[in-house]
């Protein structure tokens, strides 16, 4: 019963997160969704993942969101949506109705009787070690992307950071850069 209430609250928070005009408020509603889901998972008996969702989903992501919002400042949502509003409502509604109808008809057996089998850590680290390995690669790739995004290009003044400036510069600056890289291309040489 309390699970149902939690899910309902999560949904309401989700709708509010999408509807709210202020970014900061929307981020807090999202944190509410995460917290409700974490509690739901806890009530389900999935304790470990509830803790992870609470700390990463409700905690870390919210902190990052708030941090990003304070960096960029509030920016109100424009009134004109990208796609017609009826489509933006109809498409997700169709997905929901289809899936809900399907699930309610399918009659999935409740897993109350299912014995709590292997613990999360045993499954995650031993049986699904390949997932963990792929995750490490995923995190590394994400960090690389973040580094590339946040990198300051100022360390090399030759390559101006705005093309507008580069164009108004005398063209020779561009060519010097090109020639320079030509030269150390010759130095390093092709490895084969």
């Amino acid at each position: 019963m309390e699970s149902l209430v939690l899910l309902l609250v999560a949904l309401i928070c989700a709708i509010q997160a999408v509807r709210s005009a202020q970014l900061l408020i929307a981020a807090l509603w999202l944190a509410g969704v995460s917290a409700c889901i974490a509690l739901f998972l806890y009530a389900l008996g999935a304790h470990a993942i509830a803790v992870i969702e609470l700390s990463v989903g409700a905690g870390l992501v919210t902190i990052l969101m708030v941090f990003a919002i304070t960096m960029v400042g509030e920016d109100s949502e424009p009134h004109q949506p990208v796609v017609p509003r009826w489509m933006a409502i109809a498409l997700p509604a169709a997905v929901l109705i289809l899936a809900a109808g399907l699930l309610l008809n399918a009659g999935i057996s409740s897993s109350a009787d299912a014995a709590p089998d292997e613990s999360l850590s045993a499954v995650l680290w031993q049986l699904r070690g390949a997932d963990v390995a792929a995750q490490l690669a995923l995190i590394f790739a994400g960090v690389l992307g973040l580094l590339a995004l946040l990198a300051d290009d100022r360390e090399e003044p030759g390559a101006s950071s705005l093309w507008v400036e580069a164009e108004s510069d005398e063209p020779s600056a561009q060519f010097r850069v090109a020639e320079k890289s030509e030269v150390d291309l010759e130095e390093v040489g092709s490895p084969q």
């Binding site: 949904l11 989700a14 999408v18 990208v82 796609v83 997700p92």
Partner: peptide, 20 residues
């Protein structure tokens, strides 16, 4: 629970389509 999961998907999809 699964219906709620799909409801969250629907809300998210709506957001992706309607928000800028």
């Amino acid at each position: 629970g699964l219906v709620a999961a799909f409801a969250l998907l629907a809300v998210g999809l709506y957001g992706l389509l309607a928000l800028r």
